[in-house]
């Protein structure tokens, strides 16, 4: 399956799952909102152009915003993690080996610890910025701290489950893998 087809499919899939499954769950508590949709951005290929990455993240966030009627609320944090992503990847992976031989970030392509750190940091930054915007509109400081902590924990759990359920075969980019 070509990378464009696969990622377009993921785009639609993540939006629908977020809006019609996760957002429909009856709220357990004010702080608990399950977010998974931004995993789409974390799973985009290594080789993607930085500007294109920003543009895709912006469109992706905005699409979800039009489903939830909050224009800009999800687009802004998506943009932020898309901007930080290349820098973080440069720090976390050994240069000129992984990026050339694997297509996208995963447990296998980056190694367990770097990938977990990558997911944790971007999840935290995403929620921090998202809740910050919400907090500026309403709410108090305890709402801010509590919601960042709770949503990050829930999201990490969801991402872990997703990684287990949809095991992605770490594909090699080079021809050597197919021999």
């Amino acid at each position: 399956m070509s990378s464009i087809v696969k990622n377009s499919f993921r785009f639609v899939f993540f939006i629908l799952i977020q809006r019609y499954v996760l957002n429909e769950i009856p709220p357990l508590h004010q702080f608990v909102t399950p977010y998974l949709y931004f995993l789409f951005i974390l799973w985009l290929p290594f080789s993607i152009n930085r500007f294109l990455l920003l543009l895709i993240a912006f469109l992706f966030g905005l699409t979800l915003d039009y489903f939830t009627q909050t224009p800009g609320l999800h687009a802004a944090p998506c943009l932020l993690i898309a901007y930080i992503r290349p820098y973080l990847l440069n720090l976390l992976i050994p240069q000129e080996t992984t990026e050339q031989s694997y297509i996208e970030p995963s447990f296998k392509s980056m190694g367990g610890a770097p990938y977990s750190l990558y997911v944790f940091l971007l999840t935290f930054i995403h929620h921090f910025y998202l809740v910050l915007i919400e907090w500026l509109q309403f709410g108090d400081f305890i709402f801010f701290i509590g919601k960042v902590a709770a949503t990050t924990a829930i999201s990490l759990l969801l991402i872990f489950v997703t990684e287990m359920l949809f095991f992605r075969k770490a594909k090699f980019k080079t021809n050597a893998a197919y021999l």
């Binding site: 500007f51 920003l54 543009l55 912006f58 687009a75 943009l79 932020l80 915007i133």
Partner: peptide
Amino acid sequence: VSFIVLQILCIIML
């Protein structure tokens, strides 16, 4: 620059 521009666009919309 494009990051900043898009980010500002988000805030304006919001």
